[in-house]
Computed example of a mutant assay.
Amino acid sequence: MRRVLKATLIGGCVTILACGAAFASGGGSGGMAGGSGGAGDLQNLAPRYDPATEYAKAIAAMKAQQYRDAARAAEHVTDAVPKNPDAWQLLGAAKAGTNDWKGSRRAYEKATKLSPEDARAHAGLGLALANLKDPKAQTEAEWLKSKIQACGDSCPDAARLKAFTEQVESAMNPAAAGAPKPSALLDRSLLFGGAKTGDAAYVQAVSLINERRYDEALASLDKAAETFGPHPDILTYQGYTWRKKGDYARAETYYRQALAIDPKHIGATEYYGELKAARGDIAGARLMLAKLDKLCAYGCADAEELRRWIDAGGDPQKN
């Protein structure tokens, strides 16, 4: 019988910043860890800063146009979760607000490497390059134009792609009135939508996963991640969805990010163990199971599910 996933609201106490490190249990969180409980070869310690809280601080500072504070908080996020593209984009926008175009360029370069098809990242990089008088800005403008052509006028992203292209081309024009505000490259829901928007996207994503509509689920999870930043529940479901799509390597990157933030996250531990079992790494799966047995020793459905995978030598649904 197919397992049905459930979600708990992430921004349940108005904003994630107000909640501090009390993560929701949507992915089976055990709360923010402060000590041991590492996952095999993962670090045993949680990061110094709660990246989801720092992400929320950066968004609040961006909204108040306090760009130095935004950059400082965003740097805490990139330090804690260096493979999170949303964090690098936020840092790039904050650096642009302080006219640190070299810093903005470096941040957006990181974002484009981590998320090569993200138009926001390419637009941000184009703006930074244009303000540095770097001719490579034209390359980013051409990339955006190619996306417009492939998308077509009826594409849901058509208006946004055109706006991005116009912003980069305006910055390339010496006669331009001035560079766009850094917030122009951030989704308006980040600055004005708040936790309610992110919660809606997150809950919708879990429903879509249960319906096996994985591409749509990933789009909703991306929206939730833009609102809440690198939250372990979101990262866990991103990993789960990519695993269901058969991309085990990408799935692993999300599980590892979730566990780097919260080493005691039950859902990420279980699903990472399932991934290892699916790859034939039964020894690795047993390590995850041993950890789960310590985290939720009594009647733990997560541990029992992983135990089924190990006993089956992989996905029990395929046997």
Results as ranks from 00 to 15, higher is better:
I148K: 10
A268D: 08
D247N: 12
E305Q: 09
S189F: 06
G152F: 15
G26M: 09
T98F: 00
N210Q: 10
I234G: 04
K113V: 15
L9S: 03
T269Q: 00
T53Y: 01
R120C: 15
Y202W: 10
G26C: 08
G178E: 06
E117D: 12
P116Y: 14
S104D: 08
R68I: 03
G40H: 13
N99A: 00
N319I: 09
Y214F: 05
T241R: 12
G124L: 09
L144I: 11
S170M: 02
E142G: 02
L259D: 00
Q257P: 02
K83N: 01
D86T: 00
A60I: 14
A70C: 03
K133T: 14
R105F: 08
T112L: 06
V77T: 02
Y214W: 02
G31S: 12
G31D: 12
K83D: 01
A303I: 06
K291W: 01
I282L: 01
Q89C: 01
A93W: 00
G11H: 06
D69F: 06
L208A: 14
N319E: 11
A150P: 10
E270F: 01
G124M: 09
P47S: 11
K102L: 10
E75W: 00
A251M: 10
G284E: 03
C19V: 08
T78M: 00
A176F: 06
L5N: 11
Q317S: 11
M62V: 08
V77R: 01
D262H: 02
C300W: 02
Y202I: 09
Q43G: 14
P232K: 02
W242Q: 15
R120V: 14
Y108S: 11
V203Y: 08
Y255V: 10
A179W: 05
A290H: 08
E274P: 02
D247M: 08
D281C: 01
R3W: 11
C155K: 10
F164W: 13
K110L: 04
A111Y: 10
E109K: 01
A33C: 12
R68E: 07
A7T: 11
G284I: 09
Q138C: 11
S36V: 09
I209P: 06
Q257A: 05
L235T: 13
A278E: 03
E216A: 07
Q238L: 10
Y255A: 04
A159C: 13
R213A: 05
D100I: 00
Q204W: 00
K133Y: 15
R120Y: 12
A285M: 03
H265E: 10
D233E: 15
V14I: 05
F192Q: 15
T139G: 08
Q66S: 00
A22C: 06
D247V: 09
K113N: 14
D247K: 07
A64L: 11
W309G: 05
Q257V: 02
L127S: 14
A176L: 03
T53M: 03
A111R: 04
M172A: 06
G28D: 13
A130P: 03
A171K: 02
S115P: 14
A171L: 03
Y67D: 10
S25T: 13
L208T: 15
A119Y: 10
G194M: 09
A176K: 05
M1K: 13
I261W: 00
K181R: 05
G273Y: 03
G97Q: 00
